[in-house]
């Protein structure tokens, strides 16, 4: 990045003297304003580097240091401690479960909307809805689920007193894995609706008609065309939902009070100085998270590229 900026500037220096002599204003305006334009990006890049790239990069460096500052890989071996391994496993399981659950439900809702047959206005209503619900996360969402499925939550009480089903006696706990999963799914569903809708809109009705015309049954259409065409978009959406759950801190923190053993909570605890007393291990934890998120976003971009190529 910086290299190309430099080049631009040097390039201009070389061209500067004939430019001064030149009379035609318009002709010379283009190259000059181009390098000036690059200069205009500097504030943005400075900001992003100062408050995102460099701080995140400093974690990277820290992850390769011992507490005394020497280069070391010891932090990464510490990642294989059972409690840390298990926190990664739980986080991955949680992300996978909620991405799958929320993704499937969201997909069917979006598909239903695309099929039509629902009242007019359902679509725009649902898109506002999804916008709200996918943004409705963190503390208030945790409260909402406590009011619903907590020990005194209305649904819990309703199930116990009216239907005789005692959720908590049967092992359910809102502050455990499944409780957290149900809560996450609340924002995963609408996010899925929002991101899969464009892909569904791009499915041409003529594909179905052409396949019917060539003798295929609806099942054969889905097997040979529908699912293969949607697959990249579906996988991409799934990965996005996965990452969305993987990095979530606020909901888990406010629901469980920091008691569930997932990676973001562990990192948060490290920052707050509660548990590990080993900042460099914290950096390695964070790095592990960034690594997984990077993989996710790479896979996402790659799948999106395939999908958009097909959808042209």
């Amino acid at each position: 990045m910086r290299d190309s900026l430099q080049k631009e500037r040097f390039g201009r220096k070389g061209a500067a003297s004939p430019e001064k002599a030149g009379g035609a204003l318009l002709v010379h305006a283009a190259p000059r304003s181009k390098s000036k334009a690059w200069l205009g990006l500097i504030p943005f890049f400075v900001f992003i580097f100062a408050f995102m790239i460099i701080p995140a990069g400093s974690l990277l460096i820290g992850a390769f240091q011992r507490n005394d500052g020497h280069f070391s890989l010891v932090n990464f071996s510490k990642l294989f401690r059972p409690n840390i391994i298990s926190s990664y496993v739980v986080t991955i399981r949680l992300s996978f479960t909620t991405a799958l659950g929320g993704g499937l439900l969201g997909f069917f809702i979006a598909y239903g909307i695309c099929l039509g047959g629902l009242p007019k206005g359902t679509r725009s209503f649902m898109s506002t809805f999804s916008g709200v619900a996918s943004n409705f996360a963190g503390v208030p969402l945790a409260f909402a689920f406590i009011s619903t499925l907590g020990r005194m939550g209305l649904v819990t009480v309703f199930l116990r007193t009216v239907l005789g089903i005692d959720l908590y006696a049967s092992g359910f706990n809102l502050y455990s894995f499944w409780g957290l999963a149900l809560t996450y799914i609340y924002f995963q569903i609408p996010l899925m609706v929002l991101i899969i809708q464009p892909a569904l809109d791009n499915m041409k009705k003529e594909w179905r008609e052409a396949s019917e015309n060539l003798g295929a049954s609806p099942l054969q259409y889905w097997l040979h065309i529908g699912i293969p065409v949607l697959l990249p978009s579906l996988l991409a959406s799934f990965i996005l939902l996965f990452g969305n759950a993987f990095g979530a801190y606020a909901t888990a923190f406010s629901l469980t009070g920091g008691l569930i053993n997932i990676v973001p909570i562990l990192i948060g605890a490290q920052i707050r100085g509660d548990v590990l007393h080993d900042p460099n291990l914290g950096y390695a934890l964070a790095l592990g998270m960034v690594f997984i998120m990077t993989l996710a976003i790479l896979a996402y971009s790659w799948l999106q590229k395939i999908a958009s190529r097909w959808m042209k």
Partner: peptide, 12 residues
Amino acid sequence: FVIPPVVLAFGL
């Protein structure tokens, strides 16, 4: 997205 808020806070 790659650098979730938790990690960002840590880095900052």
